[in-house]
Structure formats: structure tokens, C-alpha cells
């Protein structure tokens, strides 16, 4: 239980920022604006992780999501969108049906979260001060197999992304251009 008034205020501020910006991501009409709001969502989520005593996860969140993922998505958009970004992020025809389904999902989750007796499960200990040391030791001892599997997964994803996105025709054209330049 968080009892300090500052952490309560921080939680509500961060929650409002996260939910508001996530809604802006969905409702923005320009996809570049969506990605900007997404970066704000991710950074405020890192603040929420700090509130939950997970400082290493917060640092990784800023590095990987706000740093890498958002920039990569912007690069992807610049590669595939027309120069005019107006109206690049519109809704399809399932707006009201989708809204109804999602409202049902949220109502179900909220009711179940409210009815569950969390107090029986709560631990009495606090999170250790140095989370990085504990996470490092765990990753190299108990979770070493998943850790290595994830390393291989990242390698496969890297090679796969290059192979899928490579434009073979374009590469040939570029080679010919280089040859033409060499003949001059």
C-alpha cells in the first residue's frame, strides 16, 4: 500500500497523462502526431515504473520504447507515406462495433479486478533497493535459457527484417547506377 500523499498524486498525474496521450494516439488524424503522443505515453509509463520500484525497467522503457521503437516507426512512416501527412490515420467503418466490444472488455476487466480479493495475495516484504544487481544475477542464473533464446530471437528478427524489407529490384537499379557512374 502506498500511503505517502506524494506517490498518490504522482500516480494520478501519471495515469491521466498515460491514458490521455494513449487516447490522443488513437484519435489523432495525422500519424506522425500519433507517434509523438506515443513517445509521451512511453515516457510517462517509465515514471509509473519508477513509482513501482522498478528503476531498471524504467530505464529500459525509455531506451527501448521512447528511444528505439518510436524512431523506427517514424522512419517506417517516412518510407511509406505520401509527402502530405494530412488524414493519414483515419478510422474504418467498424468504429461503433469496435467501441462496443472494447467497452465490454474494459467493463469485464474492471469488474473482475474489483471483485478479486487481492489482500489475501499481498506480500509483506518490500522490493530490494538494488534491483539491477538482483535482475542481473537472475538473468544469468535462473533465467539464463530464456535470456539466450531471446538473444537468438533478436538475431533472427534482425536478419528477417533486413531480408523482408530489402528491395531486390531497387538494389539492381542502384548497382547499375554505380556502374554507369564508373563508366563516366
Amino acid at each position: 500500500m502506498e500511503t505517502s500523499i506524494y506517490s498518490v498524486i504522482a500516480f494520478y498525474l501519471l495515469a491521466i497523462t498515460i491514458v490521455g496521450n494513449a487516447a490522443l494516439v488513437v484519435f489523432a488524424k495525422n500519424i506522425v502526431h500519433s507517434v509523438l503522443f506515443l513517445a509521451v505515453t512511453f515516457i510517462s509509463m517509465a515514471g509509473l515504473f519508477l513509482l513501482l520500484d522498478a528503476d531498471f525497467i524504467a530505464a529500459i522503457q525509455v531506451l527501448v520504447y521512447a528511444g528505439a521503437v518510436c524512431i523506427m516507426v517514424v522512419f517506417g512512416i517516412m518510407l511509406i507515406q505520401a509527402p502530405d501527412m494530412k488524414g493519414t490515420n483515419l478510422f474504418n467503418t467498424q468504429l461503433f462495433a469496435g467501441g462496443g466490444v472494447v467497452a465490454l472488455v474494459f467493463a469485464l476487466c474492471a469488474i473482475l479486478a474489483g471483485r478479486t480479493a487481492w489482500t489475501d495475495l499481498l506480500a509483506t516484504q518490500a522490493v530490494p533497493e538494488n534491483t539491477i544487481q538482483v535482475i542481473g544475477t537472475l538473468l544469468m542464473s535462473k533465467y539464463v535459457i530464456p535470456f539466450e533464446v531471446v538473444a537468438i530471437l533478436l538475431l533472427v528478427a534482425l536478419v528477417g527484417a533486413i531480408v523482408i524489407a530489402r528491395d531486390d529490384a531497387g538494389t539492381v537499379a542502384m548497382d547499375e547506377g554505380v556502374k554507369a557512374n564508373a563508366h563516366d
Binding site: 500500500m1 491514458v19 494516439v25 483515419l90 478510422f91 467501441g99 472494447v102 476487466c109 474492471a110 479486478a113
Partner: peptide, 25 residues
């Protein structure tokens, strides 16, 4: 006070927003 229920409901709300985007974009 901020309890586990607050975090679960915040997470459910965020998940719903994401799901709404996936269905309707």
C-alpha cells in the same frame, strides 16, 4: 491510498484503448 486494483484498472483501460485502435484503425 494506491493499491494493486488501481494499477490493474489503469492497465485494463490502456489495454482497451490499444484494442480499440487495433480494431478501428
Amino acid at each position: 491510498t494506491i493499491s494493486l486494483t488501481h494499477y490493474v484498472i489503469l492497465s485494463a483501460l490502456l489495454f482497451s484503448i490499444g484494442l480499440f485502435g487495433v480494431i478501428t484503425k
